[in-house]
């Protein structure tokens, strides 16, 4: 069942995802009507690109750490904005061959989140063409929820 006051926030290491969070803190600050799940999607380094196992393990640890730090920082920002701790939680999931956008939307469907919040990287047309965009994937695949794209 989809619940409107269950909010899913997609976070990465980039600045725009923090902007999305600041906006959320501004809107929800002080209220205790919503549950917020902060989600970071971890993409393990590709063995084809990083064949050396030691190097790959270092890179993996580095990426995980960056995401964990971001989740901690985001949690703290929402606590500062006077959201109750019992309404806040974080999760780090591995993409497992899926793209970040797919993972976010799978998570949304499984957890019954009524609202999905993402930032926007302001990609150029060329970048969007070659690499795709998480926010547009989220917007285009959402069927039963509300999406906030914070630009």
């Amino acid at each position: 069942m989809i619940l409107w006051n269950r909010i899913l926030v997609g976070l990465d290491e980039s600045e725009p995802s923090l902007n999305a969070l600041r906006y959320l803190a501004g809107v929800l600050g002080g209220s205790n009507t919503s549950k917020v799940r902060l989600l970071a999607v971890y993409l393990p380094p590709d063995p084809d690109s990083h064949p050396d196992p030691g190097q790959r393990a270092d890179l993996a640890a580095e990426r995980r750490l960056a995401l964990e730090a971001r989740l901690a920082q985001a949690y703290h920002m929402l606590v500062e904005a006077r959201l109750a701790r019992e309404n806040l939680s974080t999760d780090l999931v591995e993409a497992g061959g899926r793209t970040v956008g797919q993972v976010i939307m799978d998570y949304q469907a499984e957890g019954g989140y009524g609202t999905v919040v993402v930032g926007r990287r302001r990609l150029s047309k060329a970048e969007e063409f070659l690499f795709g965009s998480v926010s547009s994937t989220v917007v285009h695949t959402a069927t039963d929820c509300c999406v906030w794209v914070v630009a």
């Binding site: 590709d46 084809d48 690109s49 793209t99 970040v100 956008g101 063409f129 070659l130 690499f131 795709g132 965009s133 998480v134 994937t137």
Partner: peptide, 15 residues
């Protein structure tokens, strides 16, 4: 050739 793929897994091939 291999790349670090982002949101669009086949974007470079399609290009």
């Amino acid at each position: 050739y291999n790349f670090d793929f982002k949101q669009s897994p086949f974007g470079l091939d399609l290009f």
